[in-house]
Design a binder for these strands. Structure first.
Length: 570
RNA sequence: GGCGGUGUAGCUCAGUUGGUUAGAGCAGCGGAAUCAUAAUCCGCGUGUCCGGGGUUCAAGUCCCUGCACCGCCA
């Protein structure tokens, strides 16, 4: 049995994600996971929340809660939304889990053993009023270059000049506004990625068929300027994974935690360990090549902004450890989804967020539109007009109406059971040939994770059913040859089951409703299409399903467009 | 500023290693059908493939250059 490990980039704990985030990793990962399962793969699909770092601390403070409590609550919120979108994770973990603490500390220890960790001193701004070190971006002040008064310590947003916090004039804490700041010396651990440059380069070269978007980003970071830079992997914060060398204390690092970007990808592994602890499974056979993971195919999904960390940062951790960890085999990166002529904006509340989306429509509408327009090759535009016409046409008219016309016609002429009698002829053979060709193409596109092409093929498969009905015209043949009409409608009823199986990765709820209507649990993949359209035998009872997809009318669409134009209130 | 990406039909997008009259869906126009969520099916595209050079027997597809938009810069 083919084994497939799938991870989606883990969403940050701070707040509800918008549809652009959803289509950038979690949703396509779910599509692939569902497809792989349908094809009989053994699948492990892992996602989690990314919980550490200063933004989480500040969000908790704003909410007036301890950070651990805040994260626990927000994890539940994100978990519920993931369920609402039918994201079929085998486990939705937390980067703050004990399993991740242990693994992150383990990796740090191994990297140190390999001579890849170096302690370095640096100067950093300390805020006496806040009682903490301030990350560069949380120091504000006047830009020495352009005089902008709200420049951040890493960069001036006004003139884009790269800055050091100590460059700022009249610096203050962005957290409290306090000007009681001082520069203190502090020690941090650095991962000497520069020493791994050639190994990473060779590793990337050895990958077959990676998307251009992926390799070009990775290569740029490897070769641009001075090449791959060493990276600080610790921070002076309270909230995070305490710095330890495996199980041992790390002298000089007391009170410090690992940087969120170091521990976050390790959560892919730790999340699998969380799954194993909860379900009694074995996580190492997914991740350790010496313990059974040699035959695993590992596929990652992420937005393009995440590519450097997955092609270089995380592999540096895995390869540098000197242990036989499973590394990614195929990495699928996405561009951005824009919203009605601009960007989705979390800060401005512009666009549709996951909770709002589920409030106004069932998840299948969103899943279908987003996946069939996935920003695979370039940024893609979401407009309400396009969403309305596409969803109405594809889901309500082409697919939903097909189910209606077939089941209702049968009910009125033959009753609610698959009719018997009659024979199939040239038209039926031609349809089965067409479907076979298209289903094989659909499989190729899904195997290659070419999502838009797969969606287009699936739609064409739906259309083929309508074409057949139009040509066969059972409503006409019924008048002259009821037996032939019975044979025709028998095939059409079987198409509903077939469509449910094929469509389930995209629209799981509608697919379930279709199978329920056909009163069958046979969801076998149609390796043999001719056999697949004979599963529902004469006499098999069915029910007419409710309308699968209600249409979106113009007034409703306009209302949504106005409601989501901006200014979401938290 | 540096780097990267994008620019193809009214709209959203496909166009493999350069090779027959540049494609799909939607929208639009015309027709057929009437089982169905006024839902379906068929037919219809003379598009400076952003502009300008160049390589080639042949370029949307390669090279140079200009323009526009977008992103990234740890």
């Amino acid at each position: 049995m083919q084994r497939t490990l799938i991870t989606s980039a883990i969403p940050y704990i701070n707040g509800i994600k918008h549809l652009g985030n959803l289509i950038g990793s979690q949703l396509p990962a779910d599509l692939y996971a569902r497809y792989a399962r349908a094809r009989g793969h053994e699948v492990m699909f892992i996602c989690a929340t990314d919980e550490h770092g200063t933004p989480a601390e500040l969000a908790a403070k704003k909410a007036g809660k301890p950070v651990a409590e805040y994260c626990a609550e927000m994890w539940q919120v994100q978990k519920d939304l993931a369920d609402g979108f039918r994201l079929s994770f085998d486990h939705f973990g937390r980067s703050s889990s004990p399993q991740n603490h242990k693994l992150t500390q383990h990796f740090a220890g191994k990297l140190d053993e390999a001579g890849l960790i170096e302690e370095r001193s640096s100067k950093q701004v300390y805020s006496n009023a806040d009682g903490r070190f301030l990350p560069d971006r949380y120091v504000e002040g006047t830009c020495p270059n352009c005089g902008y008064e709200r420049a951040r310590g890493d960069q001036c947003e006004n003139c884009t000049k790269q800055l050091e916090p100590t460059d700022l004039i009249d610096p203050r804490s962005a957290i409290s506004g306090s000007t009681d700041l001082e520069v203190r010396s502090t020690k941090h651990l650095f991962l000497k990625q520069s020493q791994l440059k050639d190994r990473l380069d060779a590793w990337i070269d050895s990958q077959d068929g990676w998307p251009v978007l992926t390799t070009s980003i990775a290569k740029k970071w490897l070769h641009d300027g001075d090449g791959l830079q060493d990276r600080g992997i610790t921070r002076d914060l309270d909230w995070g994974i305490p710095v330890m060398r495996g199980d041992e204390p790390w002298p000089g690092m007391e009170g410090k935690v690992f940087y969120v970007w170091f521990d976050a990808p390790i959560e892919y592994i730790a999340g699998t360990a969380e799954w194993a602890d909860a379900n009694g499974g074995d996580w190492e056979r997914w991740w350790r090549k010496d313990k059974g993971a040699e035959d695993v195919r590992y596929v990652q999904f992420m937005g393009k902004d995440n590519v450097p960390f997955h092609t270089l940062g995380f592999p540096a951790t895995l390869l540098g450890s000197g242990e036989p960890w499973k590394t990614v085999d195929y990495l699928k990166a996405f561009n951005y989804l824009n919203y009605d002529g601009g960007q989705f904006s979390t800060s401005q509340g512009r666009g549709v967020f996951m909770d709002q989306a589920l409030e106004i429509l069932p998840s299948d509408y969103w899943r279908w539109w987003l996946l069939s327009h996935a920003p695979e090759n370039q940024d893609t535009e979401f407009t309400w007009e396009a969403f309305q016409t596409d969803v109405n046409k594809d889901l309500a008219d082409v697919l939903g109406n097909f189910v209606s016309r077939v089941t209702k016609f049968c009910r009125s002429k033959f009753g609610e059971a698959v009719p018997e009698g009659g024979d199939w002829g040239a038209a039926e053979t031609a349809l089965i040939d067409t479907l076979t060709t298209r289903i094989r193409a659909y499989e190729r596109h899904m195997d290659a994770i070419e999502i838009r092409k797969a969606a287009a093929e699936l739609r064409a498969i739906w259309v083929a059913g309508n074409e057949y009905l139009q040509e066969a015209a059972p409503w006409a043949t019924f008048k002259t040859d009821p037996e032939q009409a019975a044979a025709q409608i028998r095939l059409a009823l079987n198409l509903i089951r077939l469509y449910a199986v094929l469509s389930r990765p995209f629209i799981p709820d509608a697919a379930a409703a279709m199978l329920a209507g056909m009163q069958t649990e046979d969801d076998a993949w149609p390796d043999d299409v001719d056999a697949a359209v004979r599963v529902l035998a004469p006499g098999h009872a069915f029910t007419v399903p409710d309308v699968l997809f209600a249409k979106i009318d113009d007034a409703t669409r306009q209302g949504w467009a106005e409601r989501f134009a901006g200014g979401r209130r938290e």
